[in-house]
């Protein structure tokens, strides 16, 4: 594993709406090394996509970065102009979006959608080069080159998602953010896609930020894991540590849960109740309203994210060092 290529510092981002500010990403810090696979898990609505869009600089019109820095190779993305960002986006950091079904332009051949990506960045490429490169990328994700002429509706869901992965890789970026790339697919297809991603990463040594609400997907392939709740990191660490020794009650809840395909079920796994509204956050620990281990202190004092032992942090009053 190499040097640090992405570093988030005190990142706070979210949306401004009439009723107030939604801080869907709240004081998030992490580091990503070259070639590393970082898994981010959390319930629907906890701010995972917001985090991804913030890094990409693609927040919606009412989206804002309130505070903090996003350092890509020591350059702060939050202070860049749109044009400077454009040079980095996709070229260095690319993304596979949450809904593969609609991520391709329905009236354009997929080949052309790959080619235009290349041509808009690589000025020295001829059309021929771009076509060849696109075919090569499709082959990497097990799609035959005659599919260059297919329209999106002629492909299956899994194939579309693989096309999106090819598209994300086509400029050979350092980092690919994958926002629930497999959520809409059935379990078998999910598996093959994740295996594919893992293969490609070894082959090309890019880093992956893999977002999901299904923790079980992450366990085998992640190097590091981050668990988010209500915009905050509530636990993070090396994947096997978090998995084998979950510290936060929320993570424990996630562990013995079998999330539904959509992740929209109200009772998330073993945890009853719903996550709090961003406009009416509870005082103290944000999880206390649903926590099985809740004590008086929980509703009064917000626990900090503390280092429990090497490479393992958690945000809970009741986990102690050396635990």
């Amino acid at each position: 594993m190499g040097d640090i290529i992405l570093k988030l510092q005190n990142l706070e981002a979210g949306y401004i709406i009439k009723q107030g500010d939604i801080k869907a990403v709240d004081n998030v810090n992490f580091e990503l090394k070259r070639g590393e696979f970082l898994g981010i898990a959390g319930e629907s609505g906890c701010g995972k996509s917001t985090l991804a869009y913030t890094i990409m600089g693609l927040l919606e019109d009412n989206g804002r970065i309130f505070n903090g820095e996003i350092l890509y190779q020591d350059k702060d993305l939050t202070s860049m102009t749109e044009n400077e960002l454009k040079a980095i986006r996709w070229q260095n950091i690319s993304m596979v979006f949450q809904s593969a079904m609609n991520a391709l332009n329905p009236v354009m051949k997929i080949g052309n959608q790959l080619i235009d990506t290349i041509l808009s960045h690589k000025k020295d490429f001829t059309k021929r080069d771009a076509i060849n490169k696109s075919k090569e990328m499709l082959k990497l994700v097990d799609i035959t080159e005659d599919r260059m002429n297919a329209f999106p509706h002629q492909l299956s869901g899994g194939m579309k998602q693989r096309v999106m992965i090819a598209m994300a890789m086509i400029l050979e970026p350092d980092i690919i953010i994958m926002d629930e790339p497999t959520t809409a697919l059935d379990v078998v297809v999910q598996r093959t896609i994740i295996d594919k991603i893992s293969d490609l990463r070894k082959q090309f040594n890019f880093s992956v930020i893999f977002i999901t609400h299904d923790l079980s997907l992450l366990v085998e392939i992640s190097d590091k894991l981050i668990i988010m709740y209500s915009g905050q990191i509530i636990e993070s660490g090396l994947a096997n540590k978090v998995y084998n020794n979950p510290l936060h009650p929320y993570t424990k809840g996630l562990m013995n849960s079998f999330p539904s395909l959509t992740g929209k079920l109200q009772d998330f796994g073993g945890i009853p109740g719903k996550p709090p509204n961003f406009l009416k956050l509870p005082g103290g620990c944000r999880f206390h309203t649903r926590c099985p281990m809740k004590q008086d202190i929980c509703s009064k004092v917000a626990p900090p994210l503390q280092q429990i032992n090497n490479d393992h942090t958690a945000r809970c009053h009741f986990v102690k060092k050396g635990n």
């Binding site: 996709w90 690319s94 609609n102 332009n105 329905p106 009236v107 354009m108 235009d116 990506t117 808009s120």
Partner: peptide
């Protein structure tokens, strides 16, 4: 639609997004 966001993310020139991605679909 998501493909517009993707087109923006891919860094396509604005005119191309507007014509080949947005207007081309909106005209249908």
């Amino acid at each position: 639609e998501d493909y517009i966001i993707v087109a923006r993310a891919k860094g396509l020139p604005l005119t191309q997004i507007m014509n080949k991605y947005a207007a081309r679909n909106a005209i249908l």
